[in-house]
Amino acid sequence: MTRKRISLRQELPLLVWLVIVWGALWQDFSAGNLLFGALIAVAVARLFYLPPVELGGRFNVLRAVRFAAVFLAKVVAASFQVLYLAVVRGPRVISAVVAVPLRSHSDLLVTATGHVISLIPGSLVVEVDRSTSTLYIHGINVRDAEDAAKLRKEVRDTEAGLIRIMGTKAELSALEQEVGA
């Protein structure tokens, strides 16, 4: 087998997550159970090998908490907006497919941005162009170019937030320069 071995440090987030899931499913966080869960996690990670996720090497917890709060607020606001659209507009709703070029070319950040945008009601990732890291997003109630620009800005702001949480140092400094300029 000529697979690239990954270091324990890179694998650690996955193992920790598997142990947490194990403990949560048993509803038992005693040391013995967690140790057994860790053994199973290592066995699973060895047997069912996945391509390693390339992490940015940093994670800002404070930013992540703030991002999660903003995300939840956006989900609440947008959920009610879609509810309103369903009841009032219904069949006459106008949408658009908008191309949004992202800054980052890392698979992790493109995936995370697409996920967050899909989870916020009213926007859905239709297609991803990995070579140019462009997301094609179907937005509901996008009636004109102004709405499209708003949607594009929202996606790029989401990406900026994610870069601040877990982007590489190079991406972060590029972002700071862009914001500062």
Partner: peptide, 30 residues
């Protein structure tokens, strides 16, 4: 109410994409 919104959206929205918005999203908050 979010599930109700999804049901209303499925009935009232005109095409597959807009129905997807209604069908998948309320799950998150609901």
């Amino acid at each position: 109410l979010m599930s109700l919104g999804a049901a209303i959206g499925l009935l009232r929205f005109p095409d597959l994409m807009t129905r997807m918005h209604a069908a998948t999203k309320p799950q998150v908050l609901g």
